[in-house]
């Protein structure tokens, strides 16, 4: 959506454009460089309609609770109650939204949002009900939300808390489209650092699995040097059965130069040998023997299993 189109779409309410002179725009970017919040990206973060405010988040909410932090800033600067502001997640129509990385959301977005809310507050107080409010940035000391002792330490209701505890939010994996199919890319049981690819598989057996849709040979680029084979099914549980039925032969070109790593880091075997030397290694671990000092048990791949990785294509 272009800026002019956005303005037209928002013309029935009072929206805010933040001036390019806001000090938050001049922050030194973290490498890699990404677009800083400016007049275009800030357009329409906060809007007023029929006595209610809508804050459209300028960043993706991925659990950092930026929705709550931004709503705190908006409520404080607008001088309104918590329930007077709705938070909306932005869609892909919002132009130039900065990537959500670097733990910098509040640092980069707090002042532009506070400036926008201050301008909107004044406009509403003047009786304006429609159009675009252009912000003339004011000194930070005049922004209510950023005053010392204002927001820090408060415990507001989490913006999406009620939705989360009732199972309502839609994450990417929850999106359901009519006629949706399920896919998986199979790769050789070998490290991706060495070349591998499928050479032979039993498509006839796979077709016999209820829910089979297709085998996709051209399934995208290799991961590392591991070329995959795609499978598609009409129901998710069929993927395992299709994978088994295919009985894929993999060509794995060579062993990894450190193919003995699993044995080298077999902690139980090392500990079973009895007294440990506890030597102090000097230099790279790759250049000498391994030394096991202790064993620490953590949940298996504590981060891996819970990480939602999903994409939905239409």
């Amino acid at each position: 959506m272009h800026r002019r189109t956005f303005l037209a779409a928002a013309s029935s309410s009072l929206v805010v454009a933040v001036g390019a002179g806001v000090s938050g725009c001049s922050l030194i970017p973290v490498i890699p460089a990404r677009p800083a919040p400016d007049a275009t990206t800030a357009l329409g973060w906060i809007a007023h309609r029929d006595g209610h405010y809508t804050l459209t988040l300028p960043r993706a909410e991925i659990g950092q609770n930026i929705a709550t932090a931004m709503k705190q800033i908006a409520c404080a600067e607008l001088d309104v109650q918590w329930d007077d502001v709705d938070v909306a997640l932005h869609d892909t129509a919002m132009p130039g939204v900065r990537a959500t990385v670097g733990s910098e959301s509040v640092m980069a977005f707090a002042e532009p949002l506070a400036q926008a809310c201050a301008a909107l507050r004044d406009a509403v107080a003047e009786g304006r009900a429609q159009g675009v409010v252009t912000v003339n940035p004011r000194p930070v000391s005049q922004l209510c939300a950023l005053k010392t002792g204002g927001l820090i330490g408060r415990s507001p209701e989490i913006s999406h808390g009620h939705a989360i505890v009732t199972g309502a939010p839609l994450y990417a994996a929850d999106v359901s489209l009519p006629g949706r199919l399920y896919g998986r890319v199979l790769r050789a049981p070998a490290p991706s650092e060495i070349s591998s690819r499928p050479t032979k598989w039993n498509s006839d057996a796979a077709r016999g699995v209820p829910g089979f849709v297709s085998v996709v040979e051209d399934c995208g680029p290799a991961i590392g040097k591991a070329q995959g084979l795609g499978i598609v099914a009409s129901r998710p549980g069929a993927l395992d059965a299709i994978e088994d039925a295919l009985q894929i032969d993999w060509r794995i070109d060579s062993l990894h130069p450190k193919a003995d790593i699993p044995a080298a880091i077999d902690v139980d075997t090392q500990l079973a040998e009895g007294a440990l030397p506890h030597t102090v290694m000097d230099g790279s671990p790759m250049m000498q023997g391994w030394d096991v000092d202790l064993r620490v048990d953590i949940p298996l791949a504590a981060h891996g299993p819970i990480e939602p990785r999903a994409a939905v294509a239409n």
């Binding site: 991925i62 659990g63 989490i158 808390g161 009620h162 989360i164 505890v165 819970i306």
Partner: peptide, 11 residues
Amino acid sequence: WLDLAVPQCGY
């Protein structure tokens, strides 16, 4: 859960 602000990403 709400009173103690338990959820973060919520997944």
